[in-house]
Design a protein around this nucleic acid. Structure first.
Lengths: 154, 154
DNA sequence: GGTGAAATTGACAAGAC
DNA sequence: GTCTTGTCAATTTCACC
């Protein structure tokens, strides 16, 4: 699907704030309300916009302890990999999980309330998943940047 | 701020889809439309809901190459750290940047179109920031899980 | 805290350019 | 592909429990 500059600008605006009215958007883009409406519907239909979500402030709900867990599997047979990925995806503490290249097989972003909760998570949840070889965890000291907005500008 | 179960459920719902109408939410929560409205406004005022955003599908805009860059600084004086963080935060390819414990000082999540674009990013942008000691990059092979929704349930 | 009805405003559809 | 008009459904306010 080909995006023109209006589509790109529209996507940037919606990634910053999706609760803006079409009228506000139409002013910013110098377009009519209907044109904005049609373009948004098109972007949704084509799957460019996957969903609209509310972002919750971690610190306000006492979940400001963030850990990054690097994980090596013992073996890499199809079975092991599929099983591991399925189990990990189920854990609510795991917000992100990536299969990656390099020294470790997986990188996880884990959010809990504090170190004690992290210990619980490791002992009772993560390491009870079979096939895990070794892990390496590092903890967030400070969040320098965190955005969900991907630049779509040319 | 104290959250009751209705607030928690509301937050869960809004983190999944913030474009639901208050009527839909009121049905799911067995509450009146106005009550839902007032609770949402309260959550926004208190800063629990930090923003509403549209999520864009990486693959649809040709930005499916994800890299994780671990970075060590040469020195850790206040000046160096502040300068580095400021420069990194400016880079549009960097969606996330965390100051972390462990072998490296920072962990970056970088999104570009392909390996060539990543090379460009490293050579022309990242490594031109002063005070960087060593870096270690690993690449995403597969995204197993990626959610923005933090569990707020008790 | 909560509701339900009234006022306001935005979303959406139809037709013309 | 965009604009104008008209309708309907949403948000928001208010009076009251």
């Amino acid at each position: 699907m080909a995006l023109d500059n209006l589509d790109r600008n529209l996507l940037q605006l919606l990634q910053q704030d999706c609760k803006q009215t079409n009228k506000e958007l139409s002013n910013k883009l110098n377009l009519s309300v209907t044109a904005v409406y049609e373009r948004i519907k098109k972007l949704e239909r084509e799957g460019l916009i996957s969903k609209y979500v509310a972002l919750v402030d971690k610190s306000h709900i006492g979940k400001s302890f963030v850990a990054f867990c690097s994980i090596k599997l013992i073996q890499h047979s199809q079975d092991y990999v599929v099983k591991f990925e399925k189990e990990v995806a189920k854990l609510e503490e795991v917000l992100e999980c990536y299969h990656i290249s390099g020294d470790y097989d997986y990188l996880l972003k884990v959010i809990v309330s504090d170190m004690e909760a992290f210990r619980e998570f490791m002992v009772k949840k993560l390491t009870t998943i079979n096939h895990i070889g070794s892990t390496y965890s590092s903890f967030m000291i400070n969040e320098v940047k965190h955005t969900t907005a991907i630049s779509v500008l040319k």
